[in-house]
């Protein structure tokens, strides 16, 4: 008779939908999956026979490859579809694309899409499990989960920690997923960035706002430094990259004043010399590459938890056990 993990339901659309207990269950499940990537044969048969489609309608390297490694290490069969070179450019709608995939008998879809809400839209229309790999400026749940795992690895907990997200909070799905999840897990959350890039009324969520990076560094146990998307320049949100770096860059002189443990995360890809200085990115506070390693484990955990069979069969299985 084995102990079971609390269910996530059919899909992972965002951390806003999950309870603290469900988020903890994903992080706890990710722990044993870390070790699989250290084996000589990096493969376990848990998703054997499952077909997963990685539907990436927006460019992505890290997230797509991370999902693909996670899928392959669990023995799933995977197909990658990118927007360019697919029938999407011929005008096919998202639902038609998904229904055609379903007709080929798939089990799961990992979707990255430029429109907020695309993942939920799809999840409500197809019976396959849907995992959100980033939708517009809505959520990027697996990125936030890997951030949490990395923070927990270092501090042994998340509750009570002070986490400040730095940069373009307004357009960032990583920021949204982080804020939803961290608040549920009992962390104190702050944001720091130019006023043009902070959403109005964010303090209503219980999030502190810092307008000076020096104050944020002074306050925080963890800085999650977001990438400044260069297209924001055209939108007139930031005058110049150099000015952004001067006011909001996480730089060595600013960190030198900190005598205590401060963890620096970045979801990548980095603009070295803009939001983060090179020597900070490669320095002792940085856990940026650990995040990448943890990303595979977290995604393995999510795939494992979502790929369960029908709940009605659970009772029978529980009775039988594995002996």
């Amino acid at each position: 008779m084995s102990r079971t993990v609390s269910s996530l339901g059919k899909d992972l659309v965002g951390l806003e939908d999950l309870s603290a207990e469900q988020i903890q269950a994903i992080l706890d499940t990710a722990e044993p999956f870390k070790e699989i990537s250290e084996r000589r044969i990096k493969k376990v048969p848990v998703l054997r026979g499952k077909t997963i489609v990685n539907l990436f309608m927006e460019p992505s390297t890290r997230t797509r490859i991370s999902f693909e490694f996670a899928e392959k290490r669990l023995s799933a069969d995977t197909v990658n579809i990118a927007a360019s070179g697919s029938s999407v450019v011929k005008g096919e709608t998202l639902v038609d694309t998904a229904r055609n995939l379903e007709a080929m008998r798939i089990d799961m879809v990992v979707i990255r899409h430029g429109s907020s809400g695309a993942a939920r839209f799809l999840a409500e229309r197809i019976p396959s499990n849907v995992i959100n790999a980033g939708d517009g400026s809505h959520e990027h749940p697996t990125q936030a989960l890997l951030d949490f795992l990395t923070i927990r690895d270092h501090f042994g907990r998340i509750e009570g920690l002070k986490v400040c997200i730095v940069g373009d909070i307004l357009h960032s799905r990583v920021a949204r997923s982080n804020i939803f999840g961290l608040l549920k897990l009992g962390a104190e959350v702050a944001v720091c960035g130019p006023m043009t890039l902070l959403p109005k009324g964010i303090d209503a969520l219980g999030v502190r706002v810092f307008q000076r990076i020096e104050d944020a560094i002074e306050w925080a146990d963890v800085l999650n430094v977001l990438r400044l998307q260069l297209e924001r320049m055209k939108g007139g949100f930031v005058p110049s990259l150099r000015e952004y770096n001067r006011f909001f860059g996480v730089t060595t002189p600013r960190l030198q004043k900190v005598g205590r443990d401060l963890l620096i995360l970045h979801p990548g890809p980095m603009n070295r010399g803009v939001e983060i200085d090179s020597d900070v990115a490669d320095g002792p506070h940085s856990v940026i590459l650990k995040q990448v390693t943890n990303g595979v484990a977290v995604r393995m955990a999510v795939l494992y938890l979502l790929a369960g069979g029908a709940p009605e069969q659970a009772e029978a299985a529980k009775r039988e056990g594995v002996g």
Binding site: S2, R3, S6, S7, T29, G308, G309, A317
Partner: peptide, 12 residues
């Protein structure tokens, strides 16, 4: 029996 059971067993 992983394909048959609903709640996922805790992985050690």
């Amino acid at each position: 029996d992983l394909a048959q059971i609903g709640p996922r067993p805790v992985v050690g």
